[in-house]
Amino acid sequence: MAQALAARREWDADGLPLGIAVNLPSRALLDRRYVGITREALERYPCPAETLVLEILESEWLEESPQAESGLLALKALGVQLAEDDLGSGYSTLSRLRHLSFDRVKIDQTLVRQIARQPLRTLRFVNQLTRLGHDLGVKVVVEGMETPGLVEAAMILGADLGQGYALSRPMPRAEVADWCRSFRWACDPMVPRTALGALADFILRDERLRMFMDDPAMVERIVHTPCRVRSYLDVIGIEGTRLDQILRVLHQAALQHGPASLDYAAARDAFVQCLVEERIRVEESG
């Protein structure tokens, strides 16, 4: 804690008012000495308390514990933020999120590790967990971001923060300031440049179509709204290819038969399969 806050004070003096996160074991919620240590560190290395995030690591034995909730509230009373680590790695984490007042949740990297093998299921899971976090009023961090495609997809799906090698590898404390000043990420969520980004937008668009499947006027409006998947095809220059043709068939099926039809379902599955086989596996597998 002292090392982290001392480093943050150095960066702040260098014109970089950064936030910083420190891992705590789950037992910290049951041991009030951690509250005292945190208070002392904040007094010794003054900084806005909300810039310190304490990440609580998973432990099943804290489930439904009144003592854990009391400990969490004692830490939050210091003004710091609390994050639940490893969301989605087990029932216990979802249970804790329900009854403990975290400020952030971190989607476990094991959920995205096999993105090249199951991209659709993986992104749908990230989408639902992101919505769950936002519905509970907490920020969502996606771990395991190791490719530009995953970063772009997470942005399109609404994740607030990301962590992984595609953004940065671990570095010595002395190198952080220079990295912050030089880091750039060229990404426009409205114009995907990766196949995973296009798939993320496709998931959101498909959800909207199914939401309004009984409203032909709304379906027509959604289909004719500028499509980010179409923008992706234009960016990579594959107009007229099989993928482009299937997308056109998909739009026609939505208009003529509706999003609940077998024709639409078949075209949707064909588009996803083609996108995965021709673009995603190539990009994500290098």
Score class of each variant (00 low, 15 high):
residue 35 V to N: 08
residue 202 F to L: 11
residue 32 R to S: 12
residue 146 E to S: 01
residue 223 V to W: 12
residue 172 P to Y: 14
residue 115 I to Q: 02
residue 38 T to M: 12
residue 67 Q to S: 01
residue 44 R to G: 08
residue 6 A to K: 04
residue 157 L to K: 02
residue 45 Y to I: 07
residue 210 R to S: 01
residue 112 V to E: 00
residue 107 I to R: 07
residue 26 S to Q: 14
residue 102 F to V: 03
residue 244 D to Q: 12
residue 180 C to R: 06
residue 180 C to H: 07
residue 28 A to T: 05
residue 3 Q to R: 09
residue 239 E to Q: 13
residue 233 L to R: 12
residue 179 W to C: 04
residue 82 L to I: 15
residue 187 C to K: 01
residue 226 P to R: 06
residue 49 A to S: 10
residue 122 T to E: 04
residue 267 A to P: 05
residue 239 E to R: 13
residue 9 R to H: 00
residue 184 R to N: 04
residue 50 E to Q: 12
residue 15 G to F: 04
residue 173 R to L: 09
residue 183 F to C: 00
residue 109 Q to Y: 01
residue 188 D to N: 05
residue 224 H to I: 11
residue 205 R to P: 06
residue 269 D to E: 09
residue 48 P to L: 11
residue 241 T to Y: 13
residue 263 D to H: 14
residue 41 A to F: 05
residue 198 A to H: 10
residue 19 G to T: 00
residue 108 D to T: 12
residue 94 L to W: 03
residue 239 E to L: 11
residue 96 R to H: 12
residue 48 P to I: 12
residue 122 T to Y: 07
residue 35 V to S: 08
residue 37 I to V: 15
residue 32 R to P: 11
residue 17 P to G: 01
residue 94 L to I: 04
residue 93 T to D: 06
residue 114 Q to M: 02
residue 271 F to Y: 15
residue 157 L to M: 06
residue 126 V to A: 00
residue 5 L to H: 01
residue 102 F to I: 03
residue 124 R to L: 10
residue 56 I to F: 00
residue 205 R to G: 05
residue 212 F to V: 11
residue 154 A to S: 15
residue 212 F to A: 13
residue 42 L to M: 09
residue 230 R to A: 12
residue 236 I to Y: 15
residue 75 L to Q: 06
residue 59 S to H: 00
residue 161 L to F: 15
residue 205 R to L: 10
residue 242 R to D: 10
residue 61 W to M: 03
residue 172 P to V: 15
residue 103 D to T: 11
residue 236 I to T: 15
residue 7 A to K: 08
residue 133 G to W: 04
residue 106 K to D: 13
residue 134 H to V: 13
residue 140 V to E: 02
residue 285 S to C: 08
residue 127 N to I: 04
residue 76 K to W: 09
residue 222 I to G: 04
residue 77 A to Y: 03
residue 26 S to C: 15
residue 105 V to C: 03
residue 267 A to H: 07
residue 142 V to H: 01
residue 162 G to H: 14
residue 149 G to C: 02
residue 144 G to N: 00
residue 50 E to P: 08
residue 266 A to G: 06
residue 80 V to K: 07
residue 19 G to Q: 00
residue 120 L to D: 08
residue 199 L to T: 05
residue 34 Y to W: 13
residue 147 T to G: 04
residue 27 R to K: 09
residue 92 S to A: 08
residue 251 H to W: 14
residue 4 A to Q: 00
residue 84 E to W: 07
residue 32 R to V: 11
residue 168 S to L: 14
residue 243 L to V: 07
residue 222 I to P: 05
residue 246 I to R: 15
residue 145 M to D: 09
residue 5 L to D: 01
residue 256 Q to K: 14
residue 273 Q to Y: 09
residue 36 G to L: 13
residue 84 E to M: 12
residue 247 L to G: 10
residue 138 V to R: 02
residue 13 A to C: 11
residue 177 A to N: 05
residue 36 G to P: 08
residue 99 H to N: 13
residue 28 A to H: 08
residue 246 I to Y: 14
residue 185 W to C: 02
residue 52 L to G: 02
residue 101 S to D: 15
residue 134 H to L: 13
residue 245 Q to Y: 05
residue 14 D to L: 03
residue 96 R to K: 14
residue 281 R to D: 11
residue 102 F to R: 02
residue 259 P to W: 09
residue 193 R to D: 03
residue 240 G to R: 13
residue 124 R to P: 06
residue 108 D to G: 11
residue 153 A to S: 13
residue 121 R to M: 06
residue 27 R to A: 08
